[in-house]
């Protein structure tokens, strides 16, 4: 790094113009942000959201297609070299899945018998489609993403997103072919949850990289390893989707436990997600 001889500062008029442009630009940004900070101003999707998603759809889809083609090519080259090892691994995996399937069938029969006894309704998440998660923004406490499907494929604002391991987030706004999503680890995301073992209910909030569970009474017996799932009390997420496992639970400053939760889904390695049907109105509290 050195001070140039040839380069000189801008002439006075140009410098003044640059400062004016900066002031006007920053002022416009502040006005735009203030409009969203008003009560009720930043809640739902805006015209700007929809227009932006529509404008950038071709760029996003093109880049995504290109990268997927590249990845597929790399995968096929790799699989050519590692086919034998892969074959062995898949055989072991199939054997394990068959055992798992056998156990699950027995459990399903048992659950059906119990449901008949209590005349309860079975809960099965209504999976609408699988879609790629094209980009994830990790800045500060924000964890937002772009989903490669939109209203044309049946994605609606509020649709929960999950992977087989557990809950991922929900859809915020949609354009015909893209959707903006908020991940469960976002600092602005909250999910009604319960501890599977004890039934204690609370609210799981994002902390950027992890999760915490609030509003669980200090008298509750929650231990590390307890599974946490959606409770269906928020009217957004259907009940029974895995959220994570308790990492630690201790007495907080108030009447509630301070519970740290490890997400079930590996948030740093999500490529495709399942889009579920939004929770029906009136499901809250079921």
């Amino acid at each position: 790094m050195r001070m140039p001889d040839s380069r000189i500062a801008l002439p006075g008029a140009a410098s003044r113009r640059a400062r004016s442009v900066l002031a006007i630009t920053l002022g416009a940004c502040l006005l735009l942000m203030s409009a969203q900070a008003r009560p009720g101003g930043g809640g739902g999707p805006t015209v700007l959201d929809r227009a932006g998603l529509a404008i950038f759809t071709p760029v996003v889809e093109g880049a995504s297609a290109l990268s997927r083609v590249g990845r597929a090519a790399a995968d096929s080259v790799a699989s050519y070299f590692f086919a034998r090892r892969e074959n062995g691994r898949l055989s072991r995996e199939i054997a394990q899945l068959e055992r798992e399937n056998f156990r699950l069938q027995a459990e399903a029969t048992e659950a059906q018998r119990l449901r008949q006894l209590v005349r309860g309704e079975a809960f099965l998440p209504d999976v609408r489609l699988a879609a790629p998660l094209l980009a994830i923004e990790r800045r500060g406490g924000y964890r937002r993403g772009l989903l490669g499907a939109g209203s044309a494929s049946g994605v609606e604002p509020g649709s929960p997103l999950a992977v087989p391991e557990g809950l991922v987030g929900r859809v915020l706004s949609v354009s015909p072919r893209l959707a903006k999503v908020i991940l469960v680890t976002d600092a602005d995301c909250a999910v009604g949850a319960r501890v599977v073992r004890t039934g204690e209910q609370g609210v799981v909030r994002g902390e950027g990289s992890g999760l915490r569970m609030d509003f669980v009474s200090a008298l509750a017996r929650v231990v590390p390893g307890d599974r946490i799932e959606t409770a269906g009390i928020d009217g957004i997420f259907p009940a029974g989707i895995a959220i994570g496992k308790v990492h630690s639970a201790s007495r907080g400053k108030s009447l509630f436990l301070a519970i740290q939760v490890d997400p079930s889904a590996n948030m740093s390695r999500i490529s495709d997600v399942l889009v579920l049907a939004p929770a029906p109105v009136g499901n809250a509290g079921s």
Binding site: T25, C29, L32, F56, E137, R144, L146, D188
Partner: peptide, 25 residues
Amino acid sequence: PTSATIGGAIAGLAEDVLLQPLKGA
């Protein structure tokens, strides 16, 4: 500086619209 300011604002706004909760940040 003038075009860098305007270019930065537009590029940042594109990022905001696609991925950020607070449009304009």
